[in-house]
Write a protein that binds this DNA or RNA. Structure first.
Lengths: 233, 233
DNA sequence: CAGTGGTCTAGACCACACA
DNA sequence: GTGTGGTCTAGACCACTGC
């Protein structure tokens, strides 16, 4: 016996992954059915199923009824990045987090935002600008619009001590979100906030959240020099 | 009864998510145990377990033995980005993919790579530079080092038609990978390749893969103007 | 239609963490 | 100890899909 007596689905998963990487089951190959594997490993089909289901979720294999399970030809690897709230992200590095509210205004949604996110004309938005610091070095510049119709309480909220990020997380649910990352040049005012040279490349994250189809908030977050999204898999 | 007769774990998951977002189970709250929920929904505990386990994987709740299941205070949302091979990424947009090998050389690993990745001194690497185009517009500039000791066949591989990306995926397994994204300025030669202005911000992805602790390949991929990592959740 | 994966069940035992 | 979630089992039925 090369396998333990009680193969857990984790052990099975590791073994299947080993066979795939060792080309025992090469790319494109049809792997044995669940019943066959259950017999080979002396466990229940459900256990095999769990291991294979997770591998499928991770993009390593393709499973189709009747057709069976195949090793993917080009494994679409998925990178999972955790998107915590800023405070947690800063504090995770051991740095001291500091927040500052820079600007606050109520007004109509700018045209580009209305166009982008299909807002009614004249929708009133709370517009906030804030800075987040790590050990007093600029970490993130946040420019946010909050849809007052979707979040009436926001009109009276005080964002001088707690950032809108944390406030929204606690106060407002959402059903859909979209986030995107891109590289952009810091225009002069932003460069000052972030203490970088004008036109220096910075990472921009834009996130939009909706509650049942209604826009809740849209935020543009520019990160300071050296910011990286990193993950292992 | 507001619930269907046969609640699948998906229905349960959606219902639990609804309760969390509707603040029926507010952030930090302890939610009922699996047995209690199974009784409420008239299903097996395993079905409840599957729904809750998936919500925990997605970062919505925290589960601990004995302590029970709680709604996370600050949901660490995870964004999953798919990292396909370049060809698939280009073709997914409907564009025609074109590949070109720009440079090829064998030599010792550069010092910064050895320092970064703990390589033996004098390790011989195959150094490749390639371009990937989408409808003849520059899509990605790829600079790659491949550890010849880890992949001896690479010395005789012909990369004029098939890019090293696809070749490696088919030919060489790996056990660990790390990928990171950052914003950087295009230095002049790179800017020419990508048809952008010198010092224009571009997205850089760096990926390293290992096989059982031995470095397989390290690649720096610079993307053309407008590249975005996007996902919904 | 038949064979594969997808899901559910009822019951069981285990592992962990807290009292 | 005791109660929670974590995992496994044996069996069952269903859904999809390729023949």
């Amino acid at each position: 016996m090369t396998e333990p007596d009680r193969p857990s689905y984790r052990v099975l998963k590791a073994e299947f992954l080993r066979r795939i990487r060792a080309r025992v089951w090469p790319p494109g190959a049809l792997i044995p059915g669940e019943l066959e594997l259950a017999a080979e490993f002396g466990c229940a089909r459900a256990t095999i199923n769990r291991a294979l289901t997770e591998l499928a979720e991770e993009g390593v294999i393709d499973r189709r009824r009747r057709a069976g399970t195949r090793v993917k030809l080009s494994p679409v690897r998925q990178a999972r990045f955790e998107i915590p709230i800023v405070r947690a992200e800063v504090e995770a590095t051991g740095a001291v987090y500091r927040y500052a509210l820079v600007g606050r205004a109520v007004g109509a949604a700018p045209d580009w935002l209305r166009a982008l996110r299909d807002l009614p004309e004249g929708a009133r938005m709370l517009h906030l600008i804030c800075m987040h610091y790590a050990d007093d070095r600029p970490f993130q510049h946040e420019e946010r619009w909050i849809n007052i119709a979707a979040v009436p309480e926001v009109a009276t909220a005080d964002f001088s001590a707690v950032g809108p990020n944390e406030w929204l997380v606690q106060a407002v649910p959402f059903t859909d979100a979209e986030i995107s990352f891109s590289a952009t040049a810091a225009e002069p005012r932003l460069a000052e906030f972030l203490a970088v040279a004008p036109d220096e490349p910075v990472m921009l994250a834009e996130r939009t959240t909706w509650l049942e189809g209604q826009l809740v908030t849209h935020v543009r977050m520019h990160f300071g020099r050296g910011y990286r999204l990193t993950t292992r898999y």
